[in-house]
Design a protein around this nucleic acid. Structure first.
Lengths: 332, 332
DNA sequence: ATGAAAGCGCTAACAA
DNA sequence: TTGTTAGCGCTTTCAT
């Protein structure tokens, strides 16, 4: 067999080898109509030459890149790692390549990355968004199919989202804590947690507990910011008896800060954390958590974005589950 | 300003608006020579029309996709999460898009993903490889620039790699353990850890400790496989007094298995884990680890793969560090 | 059922 | 310095 130096095999080569026109090769390879005999010849030639159609040519012709783009705040956070795994596994079964970007929960960076995607003519994106509704206008106007995962910018109801049931998750956790006798319950949140916060307030109200604004703090995405917020909370309000952490990074910070201040779990303070992670069981005491189906969120979002129907779909809300382990106890 | 319906602005539009030829626009936008006056006009027109060059056209013309492809075993593992973050941050500063794939440490899947990349005419890939040397032959023959990260397939010395200093890391850990009086030290490894294993054997030999083959076990990538291996090890050889875990998933499994069998740390068994993760401090006792610069590995690999000189470069070996915390004690 | 030919948006020769 | 032109590899009319 003759192997030429560094010449990429194109559809022309296959056409020549099979003694047909390029159009026929294209048709056969994309399942169009052709006589069985011709099809046979083309397939044989393609196989013999080890032909791989160039996505470049196809994409340019069709004015779109296949594949899907994924935007997450922080790939270092295992929650987003699992979400990403879900997207990848769905994309893989469809043979679609995945482009990834980390926004660091910075709207400007997000906008920039969207720009990169536009430049690449990506036409499908899954995003855990951090910018406001307007950030997404250019992408939408350019005709992108977008699906939000995990959260959505307020006011962008024209884009479908795959979410976990934050409302019920928060409510379950707070009711559990209240059932243990806690009244001064803090919420330690991160960026873009409007819905959870609202659920927190609403649940408190429903239970007849007055909201204490000082017990609601919000950190930026980074680990040190989370630690600072948690530590500040404990020091500023030593009277609190329970905290609900809005994510695994925040939960980790809370445990660390509590330990640093010699607060014992669950004697001095009870902690419930959003997101079940492997180390929650290794912690001592093991952490009580609200499990979220991170991987499923990613998988569903990918399914959705690959369907043509994506543009007009209702949100998908996935259930959460309270896993009671050892980090909560009765009010001291 | 007139905004046309859904027509993508092309270089032609800009050329017309500026009253110049398309080549001139191309030159100006890619920093070629042009009279200041012309340049001005072109830039103005481009800005006014909000022109974004299509990567599709450029890529086809240049027969290559910009951007870099990344292959990791498991994006759910925080080690690879951090490595990925390193790659992303370097790529971001160069404005390069990143394509990602998860191999699950399955050589077949790896080969398939390489195929996808080839189809996309990707020309740079960073990989934590799991296949053998031959898996990479097609990619190399196609002219891809590849850089290995974290490990390399035996026999593929023609591809540069960015590694952590496994040899010294293992040695430091084993010597530390031996210094504590341990003699029956187990190694709990994962896929592709040949060099670490060799270092383990060599260090034992240097210390005059006879290697006990039963104390060297190897798990597949998945968490349950790691747990099974760890649990089996403890049950099969209750006489072991220390274990070196070859990664955070394996370490987690070891801690879990030990706890399940009522082995106390560090009284009954000492554990050192490769890879420092946030939860290592939350564990009780806090885990003694060998820290690896995961993010740096990713960043360096990205730098390397973007340089033209990548093809002929020596390996980069980054230092590890033994962080002594509380999971190791004197031999019981 | 098949082939010829026209581009998709861009860059790089080559001319002027 | 600038414009004209020829493709990059593919899909898709439009004839045949």
């Amino acid at each position: 067999m003759k192997v030429s130096g560094h010449h990429r095999i194109t559809i022309k080569d296959v056409a020549a080898a099979a003694g047909v026109g390029v159009a026929t090769v294209s048709r056969v390879l994309s399942g169009g109509s052709a006589s069985p005999e011709t099809r046979e010849r083309v397939l044989a030639a393609a196989a013999r030459l080890d032909y791989r159609p160039s996505a470049l040519g196809r994409n340019l012709r069709q004015r779109r890149t296949g594949g899907i783009a994924l935007l997450v705040p922080d790939i270092t956070d295992t929650f987003y790692g699992r979400l990403t795994e879900g997207v990848l596994s769905c994309a893989r079964s469809a043979g679609e390549p995945v482009m990834i970007g980390a926004t660091g929960d910075d709207p400007e960076l997000e906008a920039e990355l969207i720009g990169t995607f536009l430049e690449q003519s990506v036409d499908r994106v899954i995003a855990v968004p951090c910018g406001d509704a307007d950030t997404w206008t250019p992408a939408l106007r350019a005709g992108l199919t977008v699906v939000f995962a995990h959260r959505r910018p307020p006011g962008r109801d024209d884009v479908p989202a795959v979410l976990s049931d934050d409302r019920l998750g928060v409510r379950t956790a707070v009711e559990y804590l209240a059932g243990l006798g806690h009244r001064r319950i803090a919420y330690l949140g991160g960026p873009g947690q409007g819905p959870r916060l609202r659920a927190f307030r609403d649940t408190l109200a429903a239970l007849g507990i007055t909201l204490d604004d000082e017990l609601v703090v919000s950190a930026r995405a980074a680990r040190d910011s989370a630690y600072a917020a948690a530590s500040g909370l404990f020091q500023h309000r030593p009277d609190l008896t329970a905290v609900l952490a809005g994510g695994n990074v925040l939960g980790e910070a809370a445990v660390l800060a509590a330990r640093e201040l010699d607060l014992r779990l669950p004697r001095d303070v009870s902690i419930v954390m959003f997101d079940d992670v492997p180390w929650a069981e290794l912690c001592s005491p093991p952490l009580t958590v609200i499990a979220q189906p991170a991987q499923d969120i990613g998988y569903r979002a990918a399914e959705l974005v690959m369907r043509e129907s994506a543009r007009r779909t209702r949100d998908t809300v996935l259930p959460t589950e309270l896993l009671v382990r050892g980090s909560c106890g009765p009010r001291r």
